[in-house]
Nucleic acid binder design. Structure first.
Length: 584
DNA sequence: GCCGTTTTCGGCCCGACTGTTTTCAGTCG
């Protein structure tokens, strides 16, 4: 059983406990444990013979360790089994509907034996819901609308898509006079690969309490709104036509930092931070950090205008948003030991991209110029080899011709940017690398990617990859820490084994900067770092514009606590080539 | 169920909005 499954089962148990009206603190323990499990880089299933080892993880004590042992051994645990005799697993899906919380789900079950979405819809349409306490027609309509939306769109939004929408909304809000600053908070600011909703924080003279209502009205009337969900004194919530939910908050300058801190989250990060505040005699809210018991004539407000101020008053470094996941960043910030995270400006080269020779849409020269314009010092053109036939992959003859064309452009650029010749070969498709040694020998950079085009057992896929790694020309393993394999095809090969072999052979692993649809790669990146892998972040650009997504890749590296020193292509061109695996 | 600068019990984060209330429970972030 992998960590993601363990985490899901613990989280489900928490939800069932909620429906069961259990002790809220016990529920929180299960939630905390689920998050802790998800963030582990080592598979917990391998630790069950030594529960003491499990207990070294924060949030996992004696009881939770026993639960994990049970889950791994039997696939379930006593508490979960007991809850499932009282409730149905499908009720967890109900919790995802808007305005449906544990109390309502429990009520629906006890009063109407409603346990899933279809039954809920039927009950609503039959008018049964109106017989329940606190259920008016408005509530029923809301639920029916919620069901409809849920069926239309259940997923999260990719970070680049979400950011696009945020930009458009921000531009509309900015038309209102007196709006000065708009910041994206929430998971978008933390750089999650996917976000569930948008949190926009707005400030400026128009947001001061005396005048804010006009600005609120402006936001609530934006033409982009599909459905207005809520409108308060300084908050507007709405959905877009694509069902993306947007929360806009308009705040005075004085509390902007506190609000930004608060709405950036994550939730668990905030909880831990507030616990610290209380121990120090403060209380932290979205309005300010304040003294709990101010002395006579003392201003209770300690900080609020900036995040720096707030973290500073709590005796710690200001924590970069990407790290705020309650996985050790608070302890590190207290000791002033936060790493100096990698930034976009640290990246010197991009060594995975395609041209019109295979499935790209731009020429070598266009890619070189575009990379130069973005401040890169070198690139590698790595078109596909012939086994990826649908991309018009290169055979030996075309590959060699392509190398000559690349050398030509390199010369034309006159040293303003270096253009290296490379190739991307597909390990699983080939089972081996499919060009001649002679061709490989002429390449500057050889990237091998794991495209899982067909379904093989985990063992066999892993075996094939390990075999391919033995090819002495292979220098960078593409896609091992990105989504392509690890989320959609989560179990298609044994990452741990493959990464370890890469370290032994000196093969770097690639973090693909293309924004993914899922949200798993930071723990795999941490694993790669822990194992001592060399890491290269590349855009896999198929067009000039794709190069801009490097910043999304950097965000993921930051989430994994990586520094400049952890990433190979922060080096200058010569040093980069020298640090690749030496070839025969 | 976890945890410890008040340590092995007694705590555990905070506020806004909605709907259906005639004083608040539930949901949400």
């Amino acid at each position: 059983m992998d960590n993601a499954t363990l985490a899901r089962l613990l989280d489900e148990t928490a939800a069932l406990l909620e429906i069961d009206s259990a002790d809220p603190f016990r529920i929180r323990s299960y939630r905390r444990a689920a998050e802790a499990v998800e963030q582990q880089t080592q598979p917990l299933a391998g630790m069950i013979d030594d529960p003491k080892q499990l207990q070294t993880i924060g949030g996992i004590g004696k009881g939770m360790a026993a639960n994990i042992v049970d889950l791994v051994r039997t696939g379930s645990m006593p508490l979960r089994d007991e809850l499932l005799t009282k409730y149905r697993p499908s009720m967890l899906e109900l919790l995802r509907l808007p305005s449906m919380g544990p109390k309502t789900v429990a009520l629906l079950w006890s009063a109407l034996q409603v346990s899933n979405i279809d039954e809920l819809e039927a009950a609503a349409k039959a008018g049964h819901l109106n017989t329940l306490p606190r259920f008016g027609q408005k509530q029923v309509d809301k639920i029916l609308k919620g069901i409809e939306d849920h069926r239309k769109n259940t997923g999260r939004f990719r970070i680049d898509v979400a950011e696009d929408w945020a930009d458009r909304i921000a531009a509309l809000i900015r038309e209102f006079p007196g709006v000065e600053t708009i910041t994206y908070a929430g998971s978008l600011r933390r750089g999650r690969e996917s976000v569930g909703d948008l949190d926009l924080l707005v400030t400026g003279p128009a947001c001061e309490p005396a005048v804010v209502s006009a600005a609120v009205e402006h936001v609530a009337a934006l033409p982009i709104i599909s459905q207005l969900l809520a409108k308060g004194q300084n908050k507007v919530s709405f959905t877009l036509r694509n069902n993306l939910q947007v929360d806009v908050r308009l705040l005075p300058r004085a509390s902007y930092g506190a609000a930004l801190q608060y709405f950036t989250g994550s939730k668990m990060h905030n909880v831990t931070l507030r616990q610290r505040a209380i121990r120090m005699g403060y209380t932290l809210s979205e309005y300010a950090l304040a003294r709990i018991e101010p002395e006579e004539g003392q201003n209770p407000i300690v900080a609020g205008a900036t995040e720096d101020e707030i973290y500073g008053a709590l005796g710690m470094q200001c924590i970069p948003p990407e790290l705020r996941e309650n996985c050790g960043e608070i302890e590190a910030a207290i000791k002033h030991e936060l790493p100096s995270l990698i930034t976009l400006a640290d990246i010197r080269g991009d060594v995975h991209m395609h041209t019109v020779a295979t499935d790209g849409t731009c020429t070598i020269r266009e890619m070189a110029e575009a990379a130069l314009a973005r401040g890169r010092g070198y690139i590698a053109i790595t078109d596909h080899s012939k086994n990826l036939a649908m991309t018009n992959g290169l055979d030996d003859a075309r590959a060699q011709e392509h190398i000559r064309a690349i050398r030509q452009v390199d010369a034309e650029m006159e040293g303003r940017i270096r253009v290296f010749a490379g190739i991307e070969v597909d390990i699983l498709q080939a089972g081996d690398l499919d060009l001649s040694d002679e061709t490989f020998a002429q390449m500057d950079v050889v990237v091998a990617s794991v495209h899982s085009h067909f379904q093989l057992p985990v063992e066999e896929q892993t075996e094939r990859i390990l075999r391919a790694l033995e090819n002495p020309y292979l220098q960078i393993l593409g896609h091992p820490t990105g989504r392509k394999v690890l989320k959609r095809d989560a179990h298609h090969y044994d990452l741990h084994t493959v990464l370890k072999r890469c370290v032994e052979l000196g093969i770097a692993v690639e973090h693909n900067a293309a924004p993914a649809r899922a949200d798993l790669s930071d723990s795999n990146l941490r694993l790669a770092k822990e194992l001592g892998c060399k890491i290269s972040v590349n855009t896999d650009a198929h067009a000039v514009a794709d190069m801009d997504r490097l910043r999304f890749g950097i965000t993921q590296l930051r989430r994994a606590w990586l520094t400049k020193a952890d990433v190979l292509n922060t080096l200058e061109a010569d040093a980069f080539l020298a640090s690749l695996r030496p070839r025969p």
